[in-house]
Design a protein around this nucleic acid. Structure first.
Lengths: 202, 202, 202, 202
DNA sequence: AATGAATGAGTATTCATTCAT
DNA sequence: AATGAATGAATACTCATTCAT
């Protein structure tokens, strides 16, 4: 609506930009950041190097953009969960669903996020780290409130619970693929059960 | 007797070899495999490129060797646990301790194992994958036996339990450092509690 | 019109390309393919390695190109001779002239062709071999027709005559330089006499 | 006879030396001098680099030795021919036989001689060039005497005749293999006929 | 006589990026 | 907005040779 179907020649900068980002996402997730050359990226988008550098500052610049896309989506989800649910138990259960759903919808972003973060340097690295820490902090808050309310077992220290939960969630991208007999819903429910009720039979 | 404890200087191949492996371990864990150049490795060891290629086939060759060292240590631990403990509950608890202890003793190996595996290609990749799958299979066996004996909750499917546990364990290397107020023992116990008893207060 | 005779300076890709090929021809003929480094080639052309790899796939790629230039010229000459002359005697005489003239005009190409062919591998080698065999086949045809017509002595088998002639012609590049008292014309005539009339006095 | 079967341990220096030369001959003729690494040579001989440098000064040193072996054999043959035959016609015919036979018996030496000469430098190159020129000079003498005696056609200049003959002879190594339907004797006779009687029917 | 470790200079090729057009 | 030519530094790896043993 805001972008009317403007008349144009063969140029469509927005499309070129998107083609480049898509190509980078695909390749970074498959071969890693270092394993992907600029040549690969522009060939995948069907344009030339000059076009890339017209739209982006550097290779790292696109990597940062991909991180931002993922972090933005994650932050919005988190926002929504905290607004929509009030009990710590429900909130934690929802974040697990969010993670598994994230893996399904953003598989490539997630893989890049967990494996290529190290290739961000300087200010870009700091920004990403800050946003990621923010998520950890939000999880920690949920757990803390749960312990305060008596819902969660206080013998488990907050950091261990957070990192245990995060590790479990992050790991999903390494093994879960939709369409192999388990739905994302199933996986999320079982993981929630595991971390909330424990593996021991009652 | 035949091998006198000769120490010094420029003619001690075993030492050269070790210096090179140590340098590679340090650098791979800090900057990643792709981010480390051969020049970096040999400079770190204080020898020349020629010396490196006298002892190893390629950069990837050392990466494989590092993986093997870690996998070997892990396999032995696993062996020991299965021999020493008989109940699934104890066995699972021990594997968690093993993981945390592994992170303490082999931090760099672990980081390399979880982040640089993708740089192994061909037969080397296959071998490592096979040994890693073997560990997953052993965990799965423990859980299955625990469910059969009624110790473990059967509502959680074996793969989800395995991957949940593995993710939690693997993730430890991203955050745990000894000497920051928690001992490895503490961390292991709390993680065991989390996954066995669950986070919910009883 | 669309391609103005722009001449100068640093933005003339066709010129860069030619400078590189010329440099390679000079160096390959002087020091051989293996004895010439990429550094030598680009230094001789006054450009950088990057520029080379922008225009060519590999060192071997240029070697192939040089072979093709020579083979193309040779094929055209052969075509012309077969069209212009009809008697086998005249045709053979003309091919000798062609060879000597070829040595004068393409001395470096010829030297490269006869000494560096082995450095072509795979498909490139096959293509060159095929084109060279084609020339041998054309010579063989001339001789066969000469024997059939009774012009040539049938006691000499076709392959021996062909290889004898080819060897004699190829060898010229190892010793003949214009401007040392003999013209290319002289040399060609005497070689023709040698192979047609024989060395024995009549 | 002069070398009695001396008692020895596992060392047999003369044998080691020969294994190295044989390995070099095989490899130089197959892959060229530059294309053969020291590693290839010593592996082919089943010894180590140290052993090589115990027996030879350098890679080029062995190349020179191979040239000397071939040139020595050629010089002896030439000596024999000049002593045994007196007429220029017979002598020239014999040298053709010698060349073809040389290709059969010394194929690898011949290939190395014609293709790897350029890799000899300095004094070594000079020595080889001198001995090769000597052979050319002997051929030139034969032809000159033949022209003086009226046996050979004087319209063909001596250098052209020499180089024509040499080219024809040298080329044999590129195509002739025994056991493909023609004997060395056949080939020599036909080449002699070609260069002496000429290709034209009488 | 021979080994095997080590050197240091050299190899072809690829890289992310810049810039004239 | 986009092309394609060019840079210059870096890449993993190989070389012939030397030398302590």
């Amino acid at each position: 609506m805001s972008k009317p179907a403007k008349s144009r020649g063969s140029y469509d900068p927005e499309r070129t930009r998107q083609l480049l980002v898509d190509s980078a996402i695909k390749l970074f997730s498959e071969r890693g950041f270092s394993g992907t050359s600029m040549q690969d990226i522009v060939a995948g988008a069907g344009v030339t190097k000059g076009a890339f550098y017209h739209h982006f500052e550097s290779k790292e610049d696109v990597l940062k953009l991909i991180h931002d896309q993922f972090l933005e989506a994650q932050a919005q989800e988190m926002e929504r969960i905290l607004a929509e649910f009030s009990s710590p138990v429900d909130q934690l259960r929802e974040t697990i669903k969010m993670s598994v759903r994230g893996v399904v919808e953003y598989r490539e972003h997630v893989a890049i996020f967990f494996q290529e973060r190290r290739n961000l340097t300087g200010e870009r690295a700091q920004q990403v780290r800050a946003r990621r820490d923010e998520v950890d902090r939000q999880i920690a808050d949920i757990i803390r409130r749960g312990q305060d309310s008596g819902d969660f077992d206080s013998r488990i220290s907050v950091p261990v619970a957070v990192y245990g939960w995060v590790g479990m969630s992050a790991w999903v991208y390494t093994w879960f693929r939709p369409g192999l007999g388990m739905t994302a819903e199933d996986v999320a429910n079982q993981l929630a059960m595991l971390v909330l009720d424990g593996l021991l039979a009652k």
